[in-house]
């Protein structure tokens, strides 16, 4: 069956040539509307409806299977006077910035190194990027093995093996070391994307520019610092944006690795939202936390999207 503008026009011309009555042509806006409708419907059902439902629920107090009661903005007021939630905001900030800075800087640095020998480092790049494809829950279990307390933990075992046994410790047992461990584990999963995007950006630098720098006597470090890094910022910027949003919404790796502990030291807003909604089934309170997280995500996403689409036609 023909559909769309050109299809309709062809059908019409063909029908006239054959002496039949021409079919009605579909206008351009109508066709666009028809094509967009399924997507809009699906988006509405899977995103817009749950979003409005979450906003609605956030104005109710719902405790378990008990009868809900309307509480207006009380859940929001309670959130911003709840020391636990305020603590999770700080943890979220540290975790998000930590993961983004660490993953993007390492990914970008590795991309610069790989750019000097693109063919020889293909397998290496593939291996690092593969971590991006590993689910956060699986990554969490891998890192549990690494950070296990005692000598059976891989990290402690390695420290002992190289004579640094005094440094070995129960990495997930104190607030500070657990948060650092979590940032390292989450960054490991996230480093592949900045590597890939920065490497792709470096590949777009005209060879003539690099050759000209070499002819002028620039050393490799100067080439990286003055040419490759500035000209690959586009890739790094996209990676920062994506990794920032992922870290802001992180849940799986925290759930598996630390479960928000010890004593809530690694609980982010995403984990708080889960604990309130699914463990304690305070759906209204959890929904309010979800909306706060959504606002935080939008604060990051809107300027970034606006900046990326500024030059678009």
């Amino acid at each position: 069956m023909n559909s769309g503008i050109s299809g309709a026009a062809m059908t019409s011309a063909g029908a006239m040539a054959a002496g039949r009555k021409p079919r009605r042509q579909v206008s351009q806006p109508m066709a666009a509307f028809a094509l967009l409708t399924p997507v809009v419907l699906l988006f509405g059902l899977s995103v817009i409806y749950p979003l409005f439902e979450t906003i609605r629920i956030s104005f109710w107090q719902i405790r378990g299977l008990g009868k809900p009661s309307y509480v207006g903005i009380d859940n929001y007021v309670r959130l911003f006077t709840d020391p636990t939630f305020l603590g999770t905001l700080w943890t979220t900030l540290i975790f998000t910035l930590g993961v983004t800075i660490l993953s993007v800087s390492i990914g970008w640095f590795l991309a610069m190194l790989c750019a000097f020998a693109p063919k020889q480092t293909a397998v290496f790049r593939l291996m690092i990027f593969a971590t991006f494809g590993i689910s956060e829950a699986v990554a969490g279990y891998i890192w549990i093995g690494i950070f296990r307390p005692g000598e059976s933990g891989l990290l402690n075992g390695m420290l002992i093996a190289v004579g640094l046994g005094d440094w070995s410790q129960a990495w997930l047992g104190s607030g500070t070391s657990a948060l650092v461990a979590l940032i390292v584990a989450a960054s490991w999963s996230a480093v592949g994307l900045p590597l890939l995007l920065s490497f792709a950006a470096v590949q777009t630098i005209p060879r003539t520019v690099l050759e000209a720098a070499q002819m002028d006597g620039a050393k490799p470090l100067a080439v990286v610092w003055y040419i490759m890094m500035p000209l690959s910022t586009a890739g790094a910027r996209v990676a920062i944006f994506i990794n920032l949003l992922s870290a802001l919404r992180a849940f799986d790796i925290i759930f598996v690795l630390t479960n928000g502990g010890p004593a809530r030291a690694t609980e982010t807003v995403g984990f708080f939202m889960y604990r309130e909604s699914m463990t304690q089934f305070n759906l209204g309170y959890g929904a309010a936390a979800t909306i706060v997280l959504l606002v935080a995500v939008l604060i990051v996403a809107i300027p970034a999207i606006a900046q990326r689409t500024k030059g678009a036609k």
């Binding site: 950070f147 296990r148 307390p149 005692g150 059976s152 410790q169 129960a170 047992g173 657990a178 010890p262």
Partner: peptide, 18 residues
Amino acid sequence: CASAQTILASHWDDAADR
């Protein structure tokens, strides 16, 4: 017991292994 840090880092299965 072990140090507080080890206690707080241990899940029941770690403890069982020990």
